[in-house]
Design a protein around this nucleic acid. Structure first.
Lengths: 137, 137
DNA sequence: CTAGTTGCAAAGAGTTTGCATGGCG
DNA sequence: CGCCATGCAAACTCTTTGCAACTAG
């Protein structure tokens, strides 16, 4: 139950600032690698994956497996107390949108009351068609 | 736009009856392979994937990418007109439950009205904690 | 016969692990 | 210095593709 102390390294700082700068975006390990490469900072993919795991355990980052995206997407959500977002994924254009919405609370209540299931609203991803795509369809 | 005619083969029949027999269950390509192997019917994984693709295009099967399951899950949903189900995935026990619920309609209305997003209710998967796990927690 | 089907082998894509080296504290 | 961190290469898992042999109609 004891956790090993962690060192502050160039890599851990770079990775953290990268995910923070992409807040409200979804980013993959590979994209982080490229972002950093563009800044002249080459960090091994292995290291990125390992730090994302740690950040996820620490609750600073969330990991999503999204249909239609071949690899895992990560999102920085700050340390805590972040306002819940719902994620909407457009199946036509591939866009991924965050919406803040009180409906999440309603949804949570419904499933708790009627289905005895405690929904983790942090992880909700809904699929469908965004405004632009439904107009052009 | 023309579709090639399809042959009826032993494999296509076996795969279809396998997914039908697992109705209301989620099953992976590998599991189908094992099920069939237990029946003395060895079918190449490649073939299974190809038929699942066809069945999905035909609307007979749905494909889900579920967090915590390393590979795609499939579910038979019949030809058409199936009642929508919501899927609830328990993050504690790993259980995956189908619930029939009118809340899906409400959800669809809300996002259409307030967010101009047409939710595909067929694909909803909610994560959280099932009754048993929240009691024992 | 002809065109769709099968399944092995191999390629791919994303992620994880092993291990020797590097660097924080 | 001890121990964690790093990153390359290799292993792994799931899925797709290439291709020659096969078979339903």
């Amino acid at each position: 139950m004891k956790r090993p102390k962690e060192y502050n390294t160039r890599q851990s700082a770079d990775i953290l600032s990268c995910v923070i700068s992409c807040q409200n975006e979804f980013i993959t390990a590979g994209q982080i690698s490229e972002h950093l490469k563009n800044l002249g900072k080459n960090i091994g993919l292995t290291t990125i994956y390992r730090h994302l795991d740690k950040l996820e355990s620490a609750g600073k980052v969330r990991r999503y497996v999204i249909d239609g995206v071949s690899c895992a997407s990560y999102q920085y959500v700050g340390g805590s107390g972040e306002k819940d977002h719902l994620r909407l994924k457009c199946e036509s254009c591939g866009g991924l949108f965050n919406v803040e919405c009180d409906f999440a609370d309603e949804l949570e209540r419904h499933f708790a009351a009627d289905h005895r299931f405690i929904v983790n609203t942090d992880k909700i991803v809904l699929y469908g068609k965004c405004e632009r795509c439904s107009v052009c369809a």
